[in-house]
Design a protein around this nucleic acid. Structure first.
Lengths: 341, 341
DNA sequence: ATAGCGCTGGCAATCGGTTGACGACTCACG
DNA sequence: CGTGAGTCGTCAACCGATTGCCAGCGCTAT
């Protein structure tokens, strides 16, 4: 592999310091405070002076130093985004949407992943808090009081989680689950299983609870099957228990475990959807790839990311909290469900 | 959906200012500068004084204010990560590895996505540069001179790209492509196609160039087929042109286009690998999901992310640049190639 | 003529740390 | 007992912006 020549590459010492408002002030013969006003209090100054200063700033290629501004104002222009597991494709769209909204409003996203570890999540959250204006916690595995503590330091919004006293953006899983169970019922399924996610996940609780209620209401039997991890491996590993449960359909915590289970079924020659129907959750990238393509319940995660950031911005401004319309989930029927065996 | 009660939620005014070194100084009866030294120059002070100060700091729950530190030192403790498209699963592992290494060394990652737009990439890079110690550009779509300009402002490392005078981390595509074409040749393929990626992508050039050289060397014919976008849609859209090209195998720019093409073949009843063999690039999440599972060339992207950040840290320290061992790609044989029709 | 006002722009303090220079103090040694 | 070498902690300047307060100016209204 070719290597760049150290002699021609700019070393740290070579880089010239970027221009400051003092440079502009000197160039235009005004004081630094006037420059500051010209740049961020339009109208406060004489129009000509302002023009002159702006031109000089443009000419020098001036860019404000966010650190220097942060000191007196206390605003860093930065938002923290903390997700439980970045390698879960479910978060891709959320992250991107969040990043887009943030940069549209001139904010910068600092980003971290807690790798499903509550310890790491707490430590990271605390570290980030010193340098951001607010924090967006997605799929937090912390306990309620820990989240409340964090919220007493800096504005904070949670996504996929409900905590007393904390602003939240939460998709409503009910419509998706209702439709899904309706379809299963129409197809003759009477015994189904819920393949669970992490216990620390609030969203897992929601999914189980609603599936349970609806199943009971419709006279279907439902059992909860544990999984080791909310990943494809976790789903594959649960195969034996699913088989032993003697159910005709499985609703999985998320698409990752559904995909893992689906693959394991294929490898063991268990026909899906002939012998077993499988429904996932999230509608992640790749859910439509296998044969049969995965039937799933789509979470509006890009929207959740956008709403989360907007909500956080309002929170930072000290704005009033308004009730939000719920973000509905939708059932996406593909190929992994069929008539009960 | 339940809504949190605005009255009980901490509003901005409620939050108390975090402790500063001045608070610690007052508490322990020393001067602020002594506190500063106690905290970052271990050994510079009397052991007892240092102890007393550290204890007081711990008791107050002191956390350093990164902005305040950044001002005199010029070091923000932050690294910028700019990828061409965050929704490409290829980058997930890279991003996560980068984040992990960064936080191990106490750095924070600020993260942005340029959505395949050079304009946006440049603007974002410039904006980030004011608040980071260095920038990692992954799969940049900028022109060489633009990258060089950026590099003259702050330390910068590129991944998946080679630019004169700029430190780079680059997987070596040769081994993977060589093995792949070897297999195709053994399987009797003589006419193959390269389904191309974005012209602004240096990596696309590499892949084409090496595939071309090796094909020529082995007396296989090879044609380049354009695609609209490096996505599944782009791959699907190229189906007609692939069919018209009368080749028995396709090497795709990346797994996304390979997957798109594969799906389109299935939908049109073109047997893969019976009538057409397909090889992807990257080995992204989901490549093993379809039937047939996608044969591909794996890029060591997590490793690239890690190396990229380490290299950047060295660059920031003004350290000497050392030649790096190349990161080899490996051929992952799954189910999408077979004997030539 | 003068008080009063709005418009402009400067002064200086401030945010929270970092760091070079320096003085006070201790101690050993000749 | 005087001196030189360390050791320890303080002083004060500084990083780059923001902002409350004030002064000078020209103008109008009384």
């Amino acid at each position: 592999m070719e290597q760049s020549d150290a002699a021609t590459r700019p070393r740290n010492g070579d880089r010239k310091a970027p221009p400051t408002i003092y440079d502009i002030a000197r160039l235009t013969g005004v004081s630094p405070s006037t420059v500051s006003r010209a740049l961020n209090k339009p109208g406060r100054l004489n129009a000509q002076t302002e023009r002159r200063i702006r031109d000089a700033a443009a000419e020098l290629g001036y860019r404000i130093n966010p650190m220097a501004r942060a000191l007196p104002t206390g605003k860093t222009g930065t938002l923290g985004l903390l997700v439980s597991d970045i390698t879960n494709p479910a978060y891709f769209d959320l992250v991107r949407a969040a990043e887009r909204v943030a940069s549209e409003t001139g904010m910068t996203i600092v980003f971290a992943d807690s790798q499903e570890s509550p310890e790491l999540e707490r430590a990271t959250a605390e570290r980030l808090q010193t340098s951001v204006d607010g924090l967006l916690l997605v799929g937090s595995r912390l306990e309620d009081h820990q989240i409340q503590d964090l919220s007493s330091v800096k504005p904070l919004v949670v996504v996929n989680r409900l905590v007393e006293g904390i602003p939240a953006v939460i998709p409503d899983v009910r419509p998706g689950i209702t439709t899904a169970l309706e379809r299963l019922r129409e197809a003759g399924h009477r015994r189904i299983a819920y393949l669970a996610g992490p216990e620390a996940s609030w969203m897992n609780g929601q999914r189980w609870q609603h599936a349970f209620e609806i199943a009971v209401q419709w006279d279907m039997s439902i059992v909860e099957i544990k999984s080791n991890a909310p990943t494809r491996e976790g789903g594959a590993e649960a195969f034996g228990r699913v088989k032993a449960a003697d159910v005709s359909a499985v609703l999985a915590y998320n698409d990752l475990v559904a995909l893992g289970l689906l693959r394991e079924c294929r490898d063991h020659g268990l026909d899906v959807p002939g012998r077993l129907s499988i429904i996932g959750f999230d509608d992640i990238f790749g859910a439509d790839l296998p044969t049969p393509a995965l039937t799933t319940i789509r979470m509006p995660l890009a929207l959740a990311g956008e709403r989360g950031i907007r909500r956080l911005l309002i929170e930072i401004d000290g704005g009033a909290s308004e009730n939000e319309a719920a973000l509905p989930t939708v059932f996406v029927d593909r190929e992994s469900i069929g008539p009960a065996a």
